[in-house]
Simulated scan of single mutants.
Amino acid sequence: MSAPNHPAPETFLLDGRPIPFTPGQTLMQAAQAAGVYIPHLCHHADFDPIGSCKVCSVRIQGRTVASCTMPARADLVVESETPELHHDRQRLTQMLFVEGNHHCPFCEKSGACHLQAVAYHLDMQDTHFVHTAPHHEVDATHPDVWLDRSRCILCELCVRASREVDGKDVFAIGGRGAHTTLLVNSPSGQLHDSDVAVTDRAVHICPVGALMPKRQGFVIPIGQRPYDAADIAQRPEDS
């Protein structure tokens, strides 16, 4: 009996490399499945994409699109690793650094922080822009969870995780422009009288150091953390 004749998967070109995809996948999903890294911050494989950070932007026939939301189609010619896109990603990352208070040498998340890892991947040598040194509230009222809004990059991952996984809807994004901030849905607006628990997915999904469990600082020593020895592009399970 002859083997069944399965049709070859459809592909698009990403920087000259054919990337197979299945119908319904985005460019980002197909690239990740093929082991190709596209820098990103707000995307997470467990949640529907929202395209907020724009770090994953690519070029298709002169048009810039977010690869996390763009559906893959046959015969698309996609550019990701170009000097222009590299420059744009670097500037976006630099803006995130100056719009918050990211002091990597003193941060417990150092070595496991996606923002820091993306900055290293993009060879970011400085922050380029003037630091705004914004005032952000720190919420240490909960016995087990710490919220430092100065590190929040508004990726909404905790918002989605709380709503879709934890079933609690503890977090939300509010405000406009420079005053956009992470809100806590509780009578006081603080963590201590919210429904959040240290075991919640929302507490552990933060890609930076904004939401963290208390009393777990430096459990993994500096030098042994995910991005201490490997570029984020070499860790597909984390990217």
Score class of each variant (00 low, 15 high):
C152W: 05
R59H: 01
T180I: 05
H192L: 02
H86A: 07
W146V: 03
W146N: 05
L183S: 01
A45G: 13
L76I: 08
L85T: 07
I173W: 06
E237W: 13
Q90H: 02
H179A: 12
E237F: 15
P236C: 09
L96M: 12
Q90G: 12
A31Q: 03
C206N: 04
L92I: 12
A210R: 01
D15I: 01
L115E: 01
A30L: 14
M28P: 10
H102L: 03
V196I: 07
R235N: 11
T180L: 01
T141W: 01
A140K: 04
A74E: 15
G217L: 15
T127K: 09
S52D: 15
L157F: 07
T26M: 10
D123P: 00
P105I: 06
C152T: 03
A233W: 05
A31S: 10
V98I: 13
T93S: 08
P134V: 03
V130F: 15
Q234R: 12
C53K: 04
Q25P: 14
H128Q: 10
H128F: 13
R59V: 11
E84K: 11
G209L: 04
S162N: 04
E137Q: 07
V219Y: 05
S186F: 05
R149P: 02
V36F: 09
G175L: 08
D144A: 08
L154G: 07
S110F: 02
Q90C: 06
C42L: 12
G51V: 11
H43M: 11
S57L: 09
G223V: 12
C68D: 12
N5A: 13
G174D: 11
V165M: 07
V208H: 00
A72Q: 09
N5I: 14
R63C: 07
I173Q: 09
V55S: 03
T93H: 03
P221T: 08
E108S: 09
L115C: 02
G217I: 11
S186N: 04
T199H: 08
L122R: 04
L211I: 01
D169P: 14
P23A: 13
S2P: 14
V36A: 03
D193R: 06
A119G: 13
P23K: 15
P143T: 01
L76F: 07
L147R: 04
P18H: 12
E137V: 10
V165K: 12
S186W: 06
N5D: 12
A230D: 11
F12V: 12
H131P: 10
L115D: 03
T64N: 10
Q94F: 11
A233N: 07
V78K: 00
G177Y: 04
C206M: 04
Q90W: 08
L92R: 08
V219S: 04
L27N: 07
A119F: 05
F129Q: 02
A229G: 10
D166T: 03
A197T: 04
D200C: 06
G189P: 03
A172V: 13
